[in-house]
Structure formats: structure tokens, C-alpha cells
Amino acid sequence: MEQSEPRIDYGIYEVFVQKSHGDFHIHVGSVAAPSPDLALQTARENFLRRDRAVNLWIVPRKHVYATPYDDPDFFARETDRKYREVGGYTENGRLWRMFKEKALHLEDIVRSLRDLEGNQKPTE
């Protein structure tokens, strides 16, 4: 390569794919491209050769603010957070059985609501 040739600088863009309208955009990697438009094209070629998606975001890497990896304190948490999680209340099932009933879960509600849809499809 000729010493005198000017260097070609591509920008680095981080790529976020939204797989369906029900999903948020999720980071999948990055591409090098000369412009945002071409970064979108390149991202499609690199990341969506098989997977389906409804939307793509590319963000110039220099616009990403990140935490340093060598600062674990940033993510420090008290040792036990069970009180904040569904898994911290597994005794509910046993307690309800004392009353001859079952614990109720979000999935039960979502299921009954969707069943309702099957039975009484709103007329259009």
C-alpha cells in the first residue's frame, strides 16, 4: 500500500435488533461502516441473514456510555434479595393448601384472560 494514500476511517456502530413488536431492542454486536445508512445495511447483512426482525437501531459507539468492568461495586447488592422475588415466597403454595386452595400466579391470570378471548371472540 502506498504510504501517501489517505487512511479510510469507518465509524463503529453498535447494533440493536428488535425481533418482534412485543420485544425491546436488544444489543447483538457492532459493525464498521462509513455512514449510518450503510451501518444499517451492514447490520442487516451481518445479523439478520436468518433471524427475523421488525426493527434495527444502530448507535455510534462513541455515544454509548458504559460502566467500567473493573468496578464491581457498581453492581453490588446485599447478599439476599429473595424478599423481592417470586422465588422468595414458595411457602405460599404450602400455606394455601392448609386452606385447601392454591397460590395464584400471573400465568394463571394471563391464561384465563386469553381463554376468555377464545370463548367470546368480539364480533367485528
Binding site: 412485543g22 417470586v86 415466597y89 400455606l95 394455601w96 400471573l106
Partner: peptide
């Protein structure tokens, strides 16, 4: 829809939390 999905996931804890107090 997307925000509700996240909210409902957290509400699952609220359900168990409430049940636990009343039990």
C-alpha cells in the same frame, strides 16, 4: 405492550408478596 410485559413480570412478585402477608 412492551412496558406492560416488564411491569407484569414484576407484578408476579407483588402477588406472592400480598398473599404471603395475608396468609
Amino acid at each position: 405492550a412492551r412496558v406492560l410485559k416488564r411491569i407484569c413480570a414484576e407484578e408476579s412478585f407483588h402477588m406472592q408478596h400480598g398473599e404471603n402477608i395475608i396468609l
